[in-house]
Design a protein around this nucleic acid. Sequence first.
DNA 1: TTCACTTTTAGAATTATTCTAAATTACTTG
DNA 2: CAAGTAATTTAGAATAATTCTAAAAGTGAA
Lengths: 135, 135
Amino acid sequence: MSGTSPDFASLLRGAGLRPTRQRVALARVLFGSGHRHVTAESLHAEVKATRIPVALATVYNALNQFRDAGLLREVVVAPGRSYFDTNTSHHHHFFIETDGELHDFPSDKVTIAGLPAPPKGTRLSRVDVVVRVRR
Amino acid sequence: MSGTSPDFASLLRGAGLRPTRQRVALARVLFGSGHRHVTAESLHAEVKATRIPVALATVYNALNQFRDAGLLREVVVAPGRSYFDTNTSHHHHFFIETDGELHDFPSDKVTIAGLPAPPKGTRLSRVDVVVRVRR
DNA sequence: TTCACTTTTAGAATTATTCTAAATTACTTG
DNA sequence: CAAGTAATTTAGAATAATTCTAAAAGTGAA
Ligand SMILES: [Mn+2]
Ligand SMILES: [Mn+2]
Ligand SMILES: [Zn+2]
Ligand SMILES: [Zn+2]
């Protein structure tokens, strides 16, 4: 039978990370369903609800490692908190300022024309578009 | 004779803020020359160098007040620190990730087409474009 | 001048995040 | 499988940015 449940251990190994109990639990929550935007705190709460013990420091460690491995990207839209995004493909965001929610929107319909060239001695890293809205 | 030095007291009064010694000193540094992107720490250092005593808490207070009054806008591009921008007109930013520098670029040459409509029940607040580059 | 507010300030508090050093766990090898 | 070693987790301390508190100082109206 073909695998219906994704293999998080392999995902982690492929990223050069040992598939420990807590990394697998975190990966399951992060990558088990559709794309997610989480904070360290929110992810910590979700995984604890899963009855697997994880320290908040481990969540921070894992998020940083997952990001460094390219499994996540970090999005900074509000002062004082980082969001981690399971959607690593090219896309942009709505940020609902009134309640701190982030929503994706695809970049393929969006055209940005007329961007100036990067300053001398620099290479383009990424173009972020954040559409801020309020209720 | 026509005033060659801008009148920061009036600027502050016009914003509904008393022109105290420290607010005037802060305004002078912020608005006395071309557009600036400062952090609370960097502004604090600059004003202290001017021999006017200011507490860091006062700098935070003033930056928040100036922003609320529309004299500044706040820009969040990196986790854990806020930049305050004296350019309140519509424009976008280069962010040099390797050294934390922010540079303006005018929005009038930039065209963003195909943005989806704001989610139901929300109003557009602002569209931020950040071009991230590294050395 | 006086007086009622505002503002400033030092230092404590808060929040998000990272660090430390010790305990535990994962993988390798025998 | 049993060790051994290196990687990981963890509780709690430490840091960094920012806000709060309550008391002292300053501002401007009268
Ligand atoms: Mn980080
Ligand atoms: Mn703020
Ligand atoms: Zn996203
Ligand atoms: Zn700017």
